[in-house]
Simulated assay, not measured.
Amino acid sequence: MEDQREALLRQIWAAQDEAYDLMYEYDSLPHQYGENTLYQSEAQIIDLIGEHPEITVTELAAILKKTPSACSQIVRKLRAKGWVEQVRNPENNRIFNLYLTDSGQRVYQDHTSFNRSCQEATFRLLDTFSTQELEHHLMVQRKLNEAYQEDVQHSKEHNL
C-alpha cells in the first residue's frame, strides 16, 4: 500500500515538473493578440495597467514580485511600442502614473479576449471532473504551493 502511495506521489511530482516546463516554454514565446505580438511579461503589465489605471512601476513590481528595474524595462518597451504612457503625478513630481494609450487599450482588450477563450477551453477540458474532484485538486495544489514557498524561502535564506 505504501509503495502505491509513493508511486502516486512521484507521478504528481513528475506532472508538476511537466506543468512547470510547459508554462516556462509558453511564457518565453511571443504570442499574437489581435494584430500585436507580445511576450507574457509584457501582457501581464498591459493587463495590470488596464485594470489599474494610474498604477506606478513600484506598484507593478510589488504585485508581480519583480524588481522595479525589471518592470521599468518592460514599461520602456511598451512605451516605445506606443501602448503605455507615463504621466507625472501632479501631487508628487517624483511619481509617474501609467496609463494605456488608445492602441494599448486595444491590445489589452485583445489579450483579455484571448485569455477568456483559453479559460473557456480549459474549463471545458475539466468538465469531466466533479466539483468534489476539483476541490480536492485545489487542496492538493495549495499544499504543493506551500512546499514551493518553503523551498523559495529556504533558498533565499541560504543564498544571501
Rank of each mutant, 00 (worst) to 15 (best):
R10C: 02
Q11T: 12
W13A: 14
W13S: 08
A15H: 01
A15S: 12
A19G: 04
A19V: 07
D21K: 03
L22H: 14
E25Y: 12
Y26P: 03
S28G: 10
L29G: 09
P30G: 07
P30E: 11
H31C: 04
Q32K: 14
Q32N: 15
Q32G: 13
Y33Q: 04
Y33H: 09
G34N: 12
E35S: 15
N36P: 07
N36T: 15
T37E: 14
L38S: 09
L38K: 03
Y39G: 06
Y39K: 09
Q40R: 08
Q40H: 13
Q40V: 14
S41M: 10
A43V: 06
Q44R: 07
Q44D: 15
I45Q: 01
I45R: 04
I46A: 08
D47W: 11
L48H: 06
G50S: 11
G50Q: 02
E51G: 00
E54P: 03
E54D: 15
E54A: 13
T56Y: 12
T58W: 12
T58R: 09
L60Q: 04
L60T: 10
A61M: 02
A61E: 08
L64G: 10
K65V: 14
K66A: 04
K66R: 15
T67K: 01
T67R: 01
P68G: 05
S69V: 13
S69K: 09
A70R: 05
C71L: 01
S72H: 06
Q73I: 07
I74D: 02
V75T: 02
K77R: 09
L78T: 05
R79Y: 13
A80K: 13
V84Y: 04
E85M: 12
E85Q: 13
E85T: 15
Q86D: 11
V87M: 00
N89V: 00
N93V: 09
N93D: 11
R94T: 14
R94D: 14
F96C: 05
F96Q: 00
L98I: 14
Y99C: 09
Y99N: 02
L100I: 10
G104Y: 01
Q105F: 06
V107P: 04
Y108K: 01
Y108I: 05
Q109T: 10
D110F: 02
D110R: 03
T112E: 06
T112I: 02
F114T: 14
R116V: 02
C118Q: 15
C118N: 13
E120G: 08
T122I: 04
T122L: 11
L125R: 09
L125Y: 00
L125E: 09
D127Q: 11
T128F: 01
T128R: 06
T128N: 01
T128Q: 00
T128P: 08
T128E: 11
F129S: 02
F129L: 10
F129I: 06
S130W: 00
Q132T: 15
Q132R: 15
E133Y: 02
E133W: 08
L134A: 00
E135A: 13
H136P: 10
H136V: 04
L138C: 09
M139D: 12
M139N: 10
V140T: 08
Q141M: 08
Q141K: 12
R142E: 11
K143Q: 06
L144T: 02
N145C: 11
N145S: 04
Y148S: 06
